[in-house]
Design a protein around this nucleic acid. Structure first.
Lengths: 244, 244
DNA sequence: ACCTGAACACCGTTCAAGT
DNA sequence: ACCTGAACACCGTTCAAGT
């Protein structure tokens, strides 16, 4: 939301034109960082550029958050906060559907965070334990006990995170046209002789399936596959329950 | 995923035995990069440090691979090459089991690559189409047709990649002790009143479940959960087949 | 407590210039 | 073709020093 208010000045950020609007704070820094990442990507995010947009010196930022990693951890927390469904749900299956969809919506809003969240949510000390409790409670209600509950929980978390972060994960950006032509060229080399199944379904697969796509979820969302995925996980858990 | 054909020097058998153990080449650079990442992590990998270990100037490296991204793309390809099971398999279920386990083994060998592969494999132009063909063929043999085949394929790929990359994804390293104490302290605050299900299963969950762990798969592998996950995906796909 | 300001040891990448 | 070498525009982080 914070637009670039930095004044171009050869001497650096000496003018804080709107100090009333936003005095520096942890929240302001994290929000500005997320905004920068959303607009310019994760790689071009830097403390120095962030400080410039905030109209302060880089070291002013590090007074609140000591390192780049700390800033990014806070941004991850911001994006993944409030994942538990607010709506009423009447079954554990419906709960899983809502949570999975809610997580995907969060990633869809901040696709550049996908690669970070894909691996770091899972090790984030700031994650809401209330979320963990609800997931466990839903699966316990489903009938999982002991070690099976642990395995079902890990299965649910990994599935929730995995699909969305891979769907919205980055596509090579620098020379998109060249890259897209590359993959399209390779796909044209697919013949019924070389890759029969792939060739047969090429029109259905291209740009709608992992590995043989040239856009990510932002431009080419995989809605149908995502819903199929949810039902697969739920159906699989039901099958695991039926085993004993 | 593309097969790596052994590269022989076109200049004959002149062996540079001394100081530079091998003359510079794309393969040598990529192998050295992977080695450096395996030993020191992804973040501390840099072209300049890589060049130093190779005994050349940084720009010598960029003659073969023009940018840092290009190097990392090649490393991803190296790590994820040869994923298709070599062994005979007698059912599509068994094929999925073998592929999932093989992928996890590859990530386990190179855990620092997990975060990169988690999002980038899925958009890698160098990926072996033979792998795609085999996965499609297995799912087609299972009985999936048309759009369902696409969805089942996406489900399988995402599942294969998601579990392993999250299991072996990075844990904050700089102040591991402090961080571990943090999460342990938070877990101690869990009471039957605040988080009943979590509290009840705490001994089973801690360090063996996502979010409430303080080590990653390298130190605390989730073998049981992984096998449960595989069977969940397979059982779920079977259930989706039974729908019509 | 909060921020400026300079400094340090790095980066990736570009552009010669050599051979 | 392959590599040296210098240079550029950046980094994150540390350490004062101000207020």
């Amino acid at each position: 939301m914070a637009k670039k208010t930095a004044v171009k000045s050869p001497k650096g950020p000496m003018t804080r034109s709107k100090r009333s609007a936003s005095t520096l704070s942890k929240e302001v820094i994290v929000a500005a960082a997320l905004d920068m990442i959303d607009h310019e990507g994760l790689e071009s995010f830097s403390i120095r550029r962030l400080a410039k947009t905030l109209g302060v010196f880089p070291t002013a930022v590090t007074w609140y958050l000591a390192s780049r990693r700390e800033i990014l951890a806070e941004v991850v927390e911001l994006v993944t906060s409030d994942l538990s469904p607010a709506r009423f749900y009447e079954s554990w299956q419906e709960y899983l559907r809502l949570v999975f969809r809610k997580f995907r919506s969060a990633i869809r809003l901040h696709p550049h965070m996908a690669q970070l969240i894909g691996t770091h949510l899972i090790a984030n000390p700031t994650v809401d334990l209330e979320f963990v409790e609800r997931m466990l409670s839903a699966l316990s209600y489903a009938g999982f006990r002991g070690d099976k509950l642990v395995a079902a929980y890990n299965t649910a978390i990994v599935s929730m995170v995995g699909f969305a972060t891979q769907e919205f994960g980055p596509i090579p950006v620098e020379e998109t046209d060249k890259w897209r032509d590359d993959i399209r060229g390779r796909l044209k080399s697919v013949t019924p002789q070389s890759f029969p199944t792939l060739a047969q379904h090429m029109s259905l697969l291209q740009n709608k399936a992992f590995i043989v796509r040239w856009q990510n979820g932002t431009e080419a969302p995989l809605d149908a596959s995502f819903e199929f995925f949810i039902e697969t996980v739920i159906g699989g858990l039901e099958a695991m329950l039926a085993l004993r």
